[in-house]
Amino acid sequence: MKMTTLQMKKKLDELFQREDWRVSFIRDKDVYRVEWKDTKQGVSIRIPNVIAKYEQRGEAALDELQFHVTESLKMMNQQHHLTGKEKHIFPVIRATSFPKKSKAGIKLVYTEHTAETNIYYALDLGSTYQLIDEKMLQEQGWTKDRLKEISLFNVRSLPIDSKKDTVAENDFYFVSPQDGYDASRILNESFLEEMKANAVGELVVAVPHQDVLIVADIKNETGYDIIAQMTMKFFAEGRVPITSLPFVYDEKKLEPVFILAKNRPKE
């Protein structure tokens, strides 16, 4: 028998019962909210989604939900310092449509990257990370240039292991260490330059979602179709989608590939 919304609400009431939290239920939207009483910052949970997961995985789904919601609320209520945490600051790639302000309405620090992407900056907290906002920068007396320089240094220090796949004579390399900064490795210029030096054809890179970087050595027309289809597929399946357009890397610049192989001019 399918669990009702009110039955799930009762379970969530038990999970999120704390003196410093307030819970509420927006009946017409089937949304359950947990927030800090003092700041009103919180997390909204869609009950139909929770019921679907619960019916698939049982109590384990609720344990996971409780962990992620608690971690998110803890993060909102902590004062994080950048000084002394320099080694834990990394850049993250996001779509240009990604919000420019935090949920609290404070401007996030970001740098324009390509026509499709922007670079945000994250303080790594272990099991999660917090995007850095302008208030944090001001409180620490940091400049945006310093933040950018430190984050790029750190991303260059991350290991890059790739899996290679050859299709129709084109070589595709998949970088996906699952550390939260997979796509960020597109900012490792020395890696891209090394790949460019070894490429037989045109070097194309893609960041369809946060958890993968694809680098391709495109040697023929078919290769452009493959990378375009592959990027679109990954983009549709990604947990944090970024862009469905791959980029040509040339002269240290990234240009979006708009033209599919069949429309490309013959050499």
Score class of each variant (00 low, 15 high):
residue 197 A to M: 05
residue 10 K to C: 04
residue 136 M to P: 07
residue 18 R to Y: 08
residue 130 Q to A: 11
residue 237 E to I: 00
residue 203 L to E: 01
residue 169 E to Q: 15
residue 66 Q to V: 01
residue 46 R to G: 06
residue 218 I to V: 14
residue 199 A to R: 03
residue 229 Q to H: 07
residue 158 L to K: 00
residue 176 S to L: 02
residue 35 E to D: 08
residue 87 K to M: 08
residue 38 D to P: 02
residue 153 F to I: 10
residue 120 Y to L: 15
residue 214 I to H: 03
residue 64 E to F: 02
residue 184 S to P: 06
residue 247 F to P: 06
residue 89 I to V: 15
residue 150 I to F: 03
residue 1 M to K: 13
residue 267 E to W: 09
residue 198 N to M: 08
residue 152 L to D: 09
residue 47 I to D: 03
residue 249 Y to T: 05
residue 122 A to Y: 03
residue 181 Y to Q: 10
residue 20 D to E: 14
residue 168 A to Y: 11
residue 70 T to K: 14
residue 27 R to H: 07
residue 157 S to Q: 15
residue 217 D to Y: 03
residue 246 P to C: 10
residue 267 E to N: 14
residue 18 R to F: 09
residue 163 K to G: 05
residue 189 E to S: 10
residue 174 F to K: 04
residue 191 F to D: 04
residue 39 T to D: 07
residue 266 K to E: 14
residue 202 E to V: 11
residue 36 W to L: 09
residue 171 D to H: 14
residue 215 V to R: 02
residue 190 S to C: 01
residue 181 Y to H: 09
residue 262 K to Q: 10
residue 59 E to L: 02
residue 120 Y to I: 02
residue 243 T to G: 07
residue 200 V to W: 05
residue 260 L to D: 10
residue 38 D to K: 12
residue 54 Y to L: 08
residue 142 W to I: 10
residue 20 D to H: 13
residue 240 V to C: 00
residue 147 L to F: 06
residue 32 Y to P: 02
residue 13 D to S: 07
residue 121 Y to H: 10
residue 238 G to I: 02
residue 247 F to Y: 13
residue 79 Q to A: 11
residue 23 V to Y: 04
residue 183 A to Y: 01
residue 62 L to I: 04
residue 265 P to C: 00
residue 95 A to D: 15
residue 210 Q to A: 15
residue 14 E to L: 12
residue 160 I to Q: 08
residue 158 L to G: 01
residue 140 Q to K: 13
residue 82 L to E: 14
residue 255 E to L: 12
residue 151 S to Q: 07
residue 91 P to Y: 04
residue 127 S to R: 06
residue 110 Y to R: 08
